[in-house]
Design a protein around this nucleic acid. Structure first.
Lengths: 353, 353
DNA sequence: CTGTTAGCGCCTTCAC
DNA sequence: GTGAAGGCGCTAACAG
């Protein structure tokens, strides 16, 4: 039994420090530190004693002290527009698993449309709170806005994910949205469609611009003109699709196909068209983008483009890990997409469109 | 103009330290520190000089040093079963916004079904990496498993969210799942249903157990017996609903209503039943739980129970904030739910069920 | 292979 | 109102 008085000394149960381990194992703190970081550099006996002591008192190294000393936090900041979106949460998962394996933790920066939040996240980087950052928001964090203030000079490695940041000299991992959209257009054109409408997402979204470019290029390849009457704009929500559907129902001349820049809007649109007595794909084909889970279970199942979201996260995290380790792996990575043909698309109706 | 040689000294652009500010403002580091923490304790002149110096060199306090010194990290750990789920991401958003306002950052611990991850997250707490934790996973992190090892003795405040942790002496914020399920059952019974099936989620889920209890209690209130043939088990996925739908299609005697413990399974079920020629709600009523976005746009729209997910996150974060500030706000908070009646449920068919 | 030593950057008494 | 000094817990030189 231990001397009860000794226990009395530390009733507050302060966390064990490296000193405590050293004392118990009868070595110096340096040896404890080494036993943890470079076990091979410590004699087996000492190592065993250290490990036993650690287990006995439940020692866990203090990360703040470690960070302060080593100037490495083993934390990564992930900046994203919103947490509340399946699209991002799937990517996040890929990031998390990769980071975790490498021993890194993840701090989430949800911008949530509030610019002031960005400032604080920028300071995380400036202050060395994180060793690297993954940007899912389409622009550089802490970049001077309107040239006001100095652009945050930070040497923290960053990688841009999903939304390319034009002009930024950091690695970019992205899905080739433009090429995927072109592919979808080729598919629709091959089915005989000539009047193909488009529902866009928010215009300021880099990713959206690429998809629209693909739509445009697809039209050109087919020798079709871009018709402003066939361009609708939405905000990626189900409701936006409903709104477009209502507009279409009130028209005399309808497109034979609608290409929505995401699945939610496509689904909202389909529902509205069908309720309005239009057959999908008999009268109008509807296709989306993303391949969210529900795309396969709506009626009819949605033709769409599958993006490797989890893989996107994994790759981004890997590139960042390399960067943080000093291995330069700059440049741009483009991930392949897949056209998933389901029941919501079919041949263009033969009558006058 | 500055002396170019002076700039030469720090070409590596090391982050500015409090020393640098002090030197530039011609005060001591203590004054800088005070100017930041207790501005009123510093003379206006000194304060101005300090602030100008800070702005000029872009000083940001080093959080590691601050944490080491103050033993407070201003970080909170959020442990959850998986990131890849709308249900959690909505809660997360409520947490994030509340934490952010209070100046706290958020570290995500995605368990992802891997027990070894839990160990690391536990050490985050043991090591003082975080000041508090929000548990969305239904059990205590770092608790000794099977009594092996010592239960992690940590004084880090914790709050349990969404899944109550039986026996744990920490505050719990939750939705009253049982009461909500009872309410749904009352509604179905009032519509004349007597053969009401149930699709459960994973059995080890505390939240699932509460919902099932509600189902059971609802039956009792209506004087109905629990029929094992009417209990199906799933895993909250769309596919699980499809599987149950297929089973029902092959049966002679079907229930007149199915209560699914989440919306995804209900939607998968509905789709399968309808494809199999069964009318919803004409032949069978289908109801869910959660009120995810898609519940309103499937055909027919799904009757379900709405949970205040974001509010759940906010409340949990607030209680934790209180706890960390030393204000004791223990106990249990139950948030109200709402029965959302849509087109997927209706009166029980009159013929023999 | 091991111990001693010197900080990492900050905050906070303690004097003045 | 301000400055000097010590130390939070750890790791990385540097000796031995």
């Amino acid at each position: 039994m231990d001397d009860p008085a000794a226990g009395e000394e530390r009733t507050l149960t302060r966390a064990a420090r490296i000193q405590d381990v050293a004392r118990l194992a009868e070595v110096s703190t340096a040896t404890v530190s080494r036993a943890l970081a470079n076990p091979e550099r410590v004699s087996p006996e000492a190592r065993t004693r250290v490990m036993e002591a650690i287990a006995q008192i439940g020692y866990v190294p203090n990360p703040a002290a470690r960070t302060l000393r080593s100037q490495k936090s083993r934390m990564v900041l992930v900046v994203l527009p919103t947490l509340d979106n399946v699209f991002f949460s799937r990517i996040l998962r890929g990031i998390e698993e990769t980071l975790f394996e490498a021993g890194y933790g993840m701090i989430i920066g949800d911008l949530d449309g509030l610019p002031e939040k960005e400032v604080r996240f920028a300071s995380f980087m400036a202050a060395g709170q994180v060793d690297g950052a993954l940007l899912l928001n389409g622009h550089l964090v802490g970049q001077s806005r309107n040239g006001e203030g100095r652009p945050l000079k930070t040497n923290v490695p960053m990688v841009a994910l999903c939304e390319a940041i034009p002009g930024a000299e950091i690695p970019q991992i992205e899905v080739d949205n433009r090429a995927a959209a072109v592919r979808m257009m080729d598919y629709l054109v091959a089915l005989g469609h000539r009047r193909i409408a488009y529902i866009s997402g928010p215009q300021d979204n880099v990713l959206e611009r690429e998809r629209f470019q693909g739509y445009h290029e697809g039209l050109e390849r087919a020798g079709l003109a871009l018709d402003p009457d066939l361009i609708f704009s939405g905000d990626y929500s189900l409701d936006a699709g409903v709104v477009v559907g209502t507009k279409l129902l009130n028209r005399d001349e309808r497109p034979t196909a609608v290409f929505s820049s995401n699945d939610e809007m496509a689904i909202g649109l389909m529902r509205t068209l069908i309720s309005g007595g239009i057959r999908v794909p008999g009268d109008i084909s509807v296709v989306g983008f993303d391949d969210i889970e529900f795309a396969a279970v709506v009626e009819p199942p949605l033709t769409t483009i599958r993006q490797p979201r989890r893989e996107l996260g994994r790759r981004g995290a890997k590139v960042l890990l390399d960067l943080m380790a000093g291995r330069n792996r700059a440049g741009r990575v483009r991930l392949e997409t897949e056209l998933v043909v389901r029941g919501s698309s079919g041949p263009a109706p033969s009558g006058p469109g």
